[in-house]
């Protein structure tokens, strides 16, 4: 198998290297890719959408249809992960373990037993590893700043690199950091699984809903010019604001999907202590 694989890879590579002979030189401004569609996007973006970052305007406006289905693909990947891994355990386990936070004493609670009503106990699994105080504190301090920066990235995507995808991933990463530095249960207590799944769908809904709203107002699907009377701005600014609404939708969907996939993969669907 190894030899066959090597031969196939080398043959494919040789064929592709042979094909590069017909390519335009690297970085050639006159290459076909740079002379057909893109000059229009580059020259008209300020005029038509008032967005200086061309990547954002092409992503959410000129090629918004494409991005909508990419968001749908991400959503379906989240659902696929959930359906593949999630285990709903109805019956009680034989015994549950609780750790007294102050003294570090672990108590075993047999099936049907009850815990004394106190906030000092935390639920643990069989293998308890001590949380590192430095990592825990640092992550606690860093998370608000990560989230603030992520919101900035989403909101400032019109003028600088960034946008819904990057900001959404960073928002998701902030919750993942919480889940890694403490445990998955702490993170899930902050953001319940149902809420997460609903957010995931809400993001896609915001995107598709904006498009459908344009349709209702008498324009084409995802033509944000139609939103001008609703937002009380001129049609060019309406396109800019429409891009922003869509980016928020993308951000929510990507954030929720990243958290969803992480919590399913890291606990293999049991939603226990996690990584």
């Amino acid at each position: 198998m190894k030899i066959t694989g090597l031969i196939i890879a080398v043959l494919t590579g040789a064929l592709l290297i042979y094909a590069t002979a017909d390519f335009p030189a690297w970085g050639d401004p006159a290459s076909p890719a740079s002379t057909h569609v893109s000059p229009r996007y580059i020259e008209k973006t300020i005029e038509e959408t008032a967005v200086p970052n061309m990547v954002t305007s092409v992503l959410a406006d000129y090629r918004g249809y494409d991005t909508m289905f990419e968001t749908t693909v991400i959503f379906s990947a989240g659902v696929a992960c959930f359906l593949l891994l999630r285990i709903f355990r109805r019956e009680e386990p034989e015994e549950r373990l609780y750790r007294h936070v102050l003294t570090g004493v672990t108590i075993h609670v047999k099936k049907g037993g009850k815990l004394p009503p106190s906030d000092d106990f935390e639920r643990i699994d069989t293998e308890w590893t001590p949380h590192d105080l430095i990592i825990k504190t640092m992550c606690r301090l860093l998370i608000p700043f990560i989230q603030l920066f992520a919101l900035y990235v989403i909101a400032h995507g019109h003028h600088s690199p960034g946008g819904g995808f990057q900001g959404g991933v960073m928002l998701g990463a902030s919750v993942i950091v919480l889940a890694m530095s403490q445990d998955l249960r702490t993170a899930v207590r902050r953001l319940r699984e149902k809420v997460d799944a609903l957010l995931c769908a809400t993001g896609v809904f915001i995107y598709a809903g904006t498009g459908a709203l344009c349709l209702l107002l008498g324009a084409d699907f995802l033509n944000y010019r139609a939103l001008a009377p609703l937002l009380n701005v001129d049609p060019i600014m309406a396109r800019s604001h429409g891009i922003f609404i869509v980016e928020i939708g993308v951000g929510i969907a990507v954030m929720a999907t990243m958290i969803w996939i992480y919590s399913n993969v890291s606990s293999s669907g049991k939603y226990d202590e996690g990584l």
């Binding site: 970052n53 990547v55 954002t56 690199p161 960034g162 946008g163 995808f165 990057q166 991933v169 960073m170 998701g172 990463a173 993942i176 890694m180 990243m258 992480y262």
Partner: peptide, 16 residues
């Protein structure tokens, strides 16, 4: 933009 995405997605979340 692509570099930013790869830094947050590829180097961050995929590794996790």
């Amino acid at each position: 933009d692509v570099a930013f995405t790869e830094a947050s997605v590829g180097a961050g979340v995929s590794t996790v």
